[in-house]
Design a protein around this nucleic acid. Sequence first.
DNA 1: TGCTTACGTTAGCAATATCTTACGGTTTGA
DNA 2: TCAAACCGTAAGATATTGCTAACGTAAGCA
Lengths: 108, 108
Amino acid sequence: MEAAARAVAEPTRRDILRLVHEQERTASDIASHFAVSRPAISQHLRVLSDAELVTVRTDGTRRYYQARPEGLTELSEWIESFWSSSLARLKTAAEQEHENNNKGNTDA
Amino acid sequence: MEAAARAVAEPTRRDILRLVHEQERTASDIASHFAVSRPAISQHLRVLSDAELVTVRTDGTRRYYQARPEGLTELSEWIESFWSSSLARLKTAAEQEHENNNKGNTDA
DNA sequence: TGCTTACGTTAGCAATATCTTACGGTTTGA
DNA sequence: TCAAACCGTAAGATATTGCTAACGTAAGCA
């Protein structure tokens, strides 16, 4: 989970995950969507791979990456363990926040 | 969400959140649970506070911190947005992983 | 007023993260 | 065999992070 949390903390890596979630993509395909260099993306892919947030499939010289959502399970469970023990508090807090939001900017 | 993700990526901060989730605690009380110095904890608390993952209440010279689970909502939703569009895939994948784990690594 | 407690902030340092450039390895196709 | 395409790795620069030691501030108490 440690690795997954750190991996997801980086904006570019989150964008990469989004990209390879829809469909598997090659490294250079992924890189073409970003401003940073291809090696930089390759390094991000390494981090994601180490965190088991993506899987890789090799075909010739190409490497197809695909998201592996299960890799986020532990992190998600950690978060939910926070809520499970304070569901009521969360609920009322969320409602109050919602009310406050509506109260605040009633069309300025 | 950016701030929350980065804040949670740090092990000490996750432990702090656990601690102030059960009950509100003063800064030095929190610090007493860790090996690092009090200022270090103070800095972590600042990060958590900026990320709106904790709330602070001042009473005299003491500052009481408490977890704010709602601060993790966006991050959780980001994760779930991954699953919602691939729930079936997640389910089968999880089952297969489970089976594989039971099977053991017969290849060496 | 003087002393103590509680706590944040700053400066400085070591470790880590992220990027770019340059390079090496493997596969494909003429 | 040669060249091009695809991609990872290494080296090095810079930015960021997390830590400690030292200091500053505000509150409580004699």
